[in-house]
C-alpha cells in the first residue's frame, strides 16, 4: 500500500509546530499505526533525518503510553481501540494520513507527537487512591463483594490512562477518566470509606486543568478500554453526593 503521511513536527514545547509530508510506498494492511510510524522512522533514519518522536510501550493495548491523533480522531479510525490496535487496513491505498499529537490545552506538546499527560495523574494524586498502608488490610475473603459489583468495578477500572477521552472532547474535558476512577473506587470495600473526600478532591483537581463536559460523547467512541458513558454520570453523582453528605465516606 502507498500512503502519504502528514506528520506533526515540533522541536520543543515552545517551538512552532508544522506538518511535514512523507510517502510510504510499502505499507502493509496488517501494520498498526505505530508500526507505520516505525516504518517512517526507519526511512527517516536511513536518510540521516531525525525520526518522529512518538510514545509507545507495551503495544498490547494496556499500558496507555501510545496515543496520536489520526486524521483528526484520537488513536485512529476504529472506535474503542488504542493506536497499537489500529490497523492500516482501515485506510485506502494512496490515502493521506494526518498524524498529530493528542490535542488539548491540558496536554502540552513535549516533542513531535509526544504530549504531557501528567495532568491526569494529578487527578489521581488528588484523591484517586485508597488510604490503606501496606500490611494493614483485613482478610480480603472476609469482605464480601458481589460478583456484579466486582465485574462492574472492573468495567470502570479498565481505563488505561491514555488520555484519548480528553483529546477526543471538543471541550478538553477529563470527565470520562475521572468518572471511571470514581466509579471503580466507589464499588470496592475500602474505596467506599473515602468516597466523599475523594470526589471533592478529584473533581476540584480535574476542574483546575480540564474543561467541562457537554456530553458530546466523543470520548466514549475514542476510549480504548470502552469505559461506558455512565462514568460521566458517576462524576456528578459522586460530587453531588459529597455536596449533601459532607463526611469523608
Amino acid at each position: 500500500m502507498r500512503l502519504i503521511l502528514e506528520v506533526w513536527r515540533q522541536e520543543s514545547p515552545t517551538a512552532e509546530g508544522r506538518f511535514t509530508v512523507h510517502e510510504i510506498t510499502d505499507a502493509r494492511e496488517e501494520m498498526s499505526i505505530l508500526e507505520l510510524l516505525d516504518r517512517l522512522n526507519h526511512q527517516l533514519v536511513d536518510n540521516g533525518e531525525e525520526p518522529v518522536a512518538f510514545e509507545s510501550d507495551c503495544r498490547e493495548g494496556i499500558c496507555g503510553t501510545c496515543g496520536v491523533d489520526v486524521n483528526g480522531v484520537p488513536h485512529g479510525p476504529r472506535d474503542n481501540a488504542p493506536a497499537c490496535f489500529q490497523h492500516i487496513r482501515a485506510l485506502r491505498d494512496g490515502a493521506t494520513v494526518r498524524i498529530e499529537p493528542l490535542r488539548a490545552l491540558g496536554f502540552p506538546v513535549i516533542r513531535d507527537l509526544i504530549v504531557d499527560r501528567t495532568g491526569l495523574d494529578r487527578i489521581i494524586q488528588a484523591g484517586g487512591t485508597v488510604a490503606v498502608d501496606a500490611g494493614t488490610a483485613p482478610d480480603a475473603d472476609a469482605l464480601l463483594v458481589t460478583h456484579a459489583d466486582a465485574e462492574s468495578a472492573l468495567d470502570f477500572a479498565a481505563c488505561i490512562g491514555c488520555g484519548a477521552c480528553v483529546s477526543a472532547c471538543p471541550n478538553g474535558s477529563a470527565h470520562l477518566f475521572t468518572g471511571a476512577k470514581l466509579a471503580h473506587l466507589a464499588l470496592v470495600p475500602h474505596g467506599k470509606k473515602e468516597r466523599g473526600r475523594r470526589a471533592r478532591a478529584m473533581v476540584a483537581q480535574m476542574e483546575h486543568e480540564f474543561g467541562p463536559c457537554s456530553q458530546i460523547r466523543e470520548c466514549v467512541l475514542a476510549c480504548p478500554a470502552s469505559i461506558p458513558i455512565t462514568a460521566i454520570a458517576a462524576v456528578n453523582k459522586e460530587r453531588l453526593r459529597a455536596a449533601f453528605w459532607t463526611r469523608d465516606n
Binding site: 490503606v132 488490610a137 475500602h190
Partner: peptide
C-alpha cells in the same frame, strides 16, 4: 491479595462474594 484488594484491585468474585 488482602493488600492489593484493599488498595483497589477488583479481584474476580464468586457469586457468594468470595474471591
Amino acid at each position: 491479595i488482602d493488600h492489593m484488594q484493599a488498595i483497589g484491585a477488583p479481584f474476580a468474585r464468586e457469586y457468594g462474594g468470595e474471591l
